Simulated assay, not measured.
Amino acid sequence: MLHDLERLIGPATMAALLRSYAKANWYSVATRTSFKSAAQTSTAIDLGEFWTTHTIP
Rank of each mutant, 00 (worst) to 15 (best):
Q40P: 03
T33L: 14
I56F: 12
I9H: 00
M1K: 08
R19N: 03
K36M: 15
L2W: 10
V29H: 10
S20E: 15
P57H: 11
H3T: 04
R19C: 02
T43M: 03
K23E: 13
A39Q: 06
E49N: 06
S34Y: 05
M1C: 06
D46I: 07
P11S: 04
T13I: 01
R19Y: 04
L2Q: 06
H54S: 07
P57W: 08
T41G: 13
A24V: 07
R32S: 11
T41L: 15
A39P: 02
I9P: 00
A39Y: 03
T41P: 01
R19T: 04
A24L: 11
L2C: 06
S37P: 00
L18W: 08
N25T: 14
P11I: 01
A22N: 12
A16C: 01
W51A: 00
T33M: 14
A12E: 12
H54I: 07
W51L: 01
H54Q: 10
W26Q: 11
A12C: 03
F35E: 12
L17T: 01
T41R: 15
V29S: 10
D46Q: 09
I45N: 02
D4T: 04
M14H: 08
S42D: 09
E6K: 05
S20T: 12
L18Q: 11
T52R: 09
S34R: 14
L47F: 13
Y21D: 03
L47G: 07
D4W: 10
P11E: 04
L47Q: 12
K36I: 13
G48Q: 07
A30D: 12
S42W: 04
T53E: 09
L5A: 04
R7S: 02
E6Q: 10
I45G: 00
T55N: 04
W51S: 00
S28A: 15
A44W: 03
R32L: 13
G10E: 02
R19V: 06
N25H: 14
D46N: 15
L5Q: 04
L17K: 00
G48R: 11
M1A: 08
S20N: 14
Y27Q: 13
D4S: 10
F50A: 03
T53Q: 09
V29R: 12
A12R: 08
Q40W: 08
L8Q: 05
L2I: 07
K36R: 15
K36Q: 15
W26D: 09
L47C: 12
H3C: 05
H54A: 06
A16Q: 02
R32T: 11
H3N: 08
T55P: 03
A12L: 08
A22R: 13
K36P: 01
W51V: 00
L8I: 06
L17V: 04
I56A: 07
K36A: 14
E6I: 01
W51I: 00
Y21V: 06
T13D: 02
K23P: 01
I9T: 00
T55Y: 05
L8D: 01
A22W: 06
R7P: 00
S42E: 12
G48F: 07
T43C: 03
R32P: 05
T41Y: 15
A22M: 11
S34L: 11
I45W: 01
E49V: 03
T53R: 11
Y27M: 14
L8Y: 01
F35Q: 10
A24T: 08
L5F: 05
S20D: 15
F35G: 06
A12D: 09
R7T: 01
S34G: 12
A39K: 03
